[in-house]
């Protein structure tokens, strides 16, 4: 009674703040561990991005297609935005829609894997990853066949008068469907990982507390999986909005082109397109980084970084 047993003492050993000297001292082990990886990322990520930026400000040599000189030509950005802003909007819109649909499809799957699958859990996990190994180009082509005008999906929808334009391929619907499909595993896996870590007993307790399944889900399950949802939406939205394969294989040449298609064709098909393509790439990266930062700030956890 006199000395009440205090709450379990020091679950971690007493590691007090580091001695200040270790901060100043150069950590050779860390340096050697970091050196190759960091060097690789600097040479093949940071330097190229900087180079991309300088290219985005270069100007063409008149009369020498494919040759550029160093310049601060902001006009590339003006061209990029003035001419291709609809593609930007389309990319963000398609990416956002695909992220939303992927979330709607991924959550039940991740939930069932984490809580209902039992010993089938690993089998389902393999099933989610397995389609990766058939090339995603092949699977996208398969979607083109599935959604084709004379395919059963389009025919069924036509019969039901649910298809206003009479076709799915060559429309934004096909592009968004393809994006949703292709990046679905990137949504499933992080949500599953965060749900798997959650204690089912907590959810049971929530069930006892609220009774109503939906309330339990909204107030207990969903918040617990939020870090996974956050990671999943980023891993889906970023590649989806930068993609050009789905738009090119499933969409039309005119109405569904995304910014990725523009960048690709500016680089490879438009003579002297490098600076504009670079400024488009750089703008896309900046827009996505800003959106991601805002999003992480709003819902964020530091687990991601």
């Amino acid at each position: 009674m006199s000395v009440v047993a205090e709450p379990a003492e020091e679950l971690t050993p007493q590691r007090e703040p580091d001695p200040p000297r270790s901060k100043r001292r150069f950590n050779t082990t860390a340096f050697l561990l970091l050196l190759p990886g960091v060097l690789w990322l600097i040479v093949f990520f940071v330097v190229p991005i900087v180079q991309l930026f300088t290219v985005s400000l270069q100007s063409k040599y008149p009369g020498f297609p494919g040759y550029y000189y160093r310049d601060v030509n902001v006009g590339n950005y003006v061209t990029a935005l003035a001419e291709f802003w609809p593609h930007f909007v389309r990319s963000l819109l398609y990416g956002g829609l695909a992220t939303f649909f992927a979330f709607a499809l991924a959550y039940p799957l991740a939930y069932a894997m984490a809580f209902k699958a039992g010993r089938w859990r690993n089998v389902m996990l393999i099933c989610v990853i397995a389609p990766f190994f058939t090339s995603f180009i092949l699977r996208t082509i398969a979607w083109r066949q599935i959604l084709a005008d004379d395919g059963f999906v389009a025919s069924a929808l036509r019969t039901l008068h649910l298809l206003p334009g009479d076709r799915i391929t060559e429309t934004w619907i096909a592009v968004v469907a393809g994006l949703t499909y292709n990046f679905l595993p990137f949504m499933v896996l992080p949500i599953y990982a965060s749900l798997e870590r959650a204690d089912p007993k907590v959810i049971e307790a929530g069930g006892d507390l609220y009774g109503n399944g939906f309330t339990t889900f909204r107030t207990v399950t969903l918040p617990m999986s939020l870090p996974g949802v956050l990671a999943g939406t980023l891993l889906t939205f970023i590649p989806a909005s930068g993609d050009f394969v789905n738009a090119s294989l499933l969409g039309s040449d005119r109405s569904t082109k995304m910014v990725g298609n523009v960048i690709e064709s500016q680089f490879f098909k438009v003579p002297g397109g490098f600076p504009v393509a670079a400024s488009l790439s750089f703008t896309l990266m900046a827009v996505i980084l800003v959106l991601v930062t805002l999003y992480v700030r709003r819902f964020g956890s530091e687990e991601l970084v």
């Binding site: 991005i49 180079q51 590649p239 930068g242 990725g260 690709e264 790439s281 990266m285 980084l289 991601v292």
Partner: peptide, 12 residues
């Protein structure tokens, strides 16, 4: 790099 679209990685 994970938050950068692949097309930007490729282009750069």
């Amino acid at each position: 790099p994970m938050a950068t679209p692949e097309i930007v990685l490729g282009a750069s």
